[in-house]
Design a protein around this nucleic acid. Structure first.
Lengths: 140, 140
DNA sequence: AATCTCCTTGGAATAATTCTAAACTGTTGA
DNA sequence: TCAACAGTTTAGAATTATTCCAAGGAGATT
């Protein structure tokens, strides 16, 4: 039964990433990774934690999101000035961005073909190619 | 002679965009549009203006960048959390982003092929497709 | 030149994020 | 089991980028 060991899975995930499994990290990891692919901001995750009666400071939420990102558990996506989104889907994929609502949505990499990329300038290498499809409400 | 009417060109550009050609807008437009394709932040442009002995407040730089963007003279590019870049190249193209230095560089749209875009969700239309090639320094 | 509207300004306000120093806790080794 | 260390968390201050505001200034039109 999963419910008898509710933290086993996220605990293993943290250990694999070499992160000390503290209460806060376990709780945040649970929120992040146990409900499918998500795109959260620090504020939003902090709000969820509060709603779930988990006491975590906003600073810790920021720390944790960045640590998870460095550990490869999350991906940071920048689409909106002055707001960072963290994506629990770390596989190769792209995004729809709803400009009106600020919502992000995954687009499987299979549904977009990016070809003929120019060679990276000397001394650099490609860290990632991001495709953002910005959507606006259709007038009509 | 161009030098006898140094503002004629930017003045015409502002008029075409329906923007009242004030001293500040003229000066900023000159900085922006008379040296090829550029990617500036508000702070950077404000610094340039100061260096050129043009007295403009930072608030006006922000106002102007947004007005130019709405008028189609600039394009806003978001690649870096908490920092907006304004691109004087408004033609269809993409970007290299040097993560180490925060520099942006144009990539002609002809050099990247994006195909098989998924259809935009119902009620929306594609405002723009942005491809950002994130570069890191090559370790070696 | 009068007038109207739009623009610019400095400074305060806001928002997102980072910093800091002190208190706390998971882990390790005895 | 417990001491002790290193890594973690915290509240609140600090920082950064940007926006807001109210008042004065300046293009445009007559």
């Amino acid at each position: 039964m999963i419910s008898t060991r509710p933290y086993a899975e996220v605990l293993a995930r943290l250990r694999r990433a070499g992160l000390r499994p503290t209460r806060q990290r376990l709780a945040l990891a649970k929120l992040l990774f146990e409900s499918g692919d998500r795109h959260v901001t620090a504020e939003a995750l902090h709000g969820e934690a509060e709603a779930a009666a988990i006491r975590v400071s906003l600073a810790t939420v920021y720390n944790t999101l960045h640590q998870f990102t460095h550990a490869g558990l999350l991906r940071e996506v920048v689409v909106d000035a002055g707001r960072s989104y963290f994506d629990t889907n770390i596989s190769d994929h792209h995004h729809f961005f709803y400009e009106a609502s600020g919502r992000l949505q995954d687009v499987p990499s299979a549904e977009v073909k990016v070809a003929d990329l120019p060679a990276p300038p000397a001394g650099t290498e490609v860290a990632r190619v991001e495709v953002v499809i910005r959507l606006r409400d259709r007038a009509s």
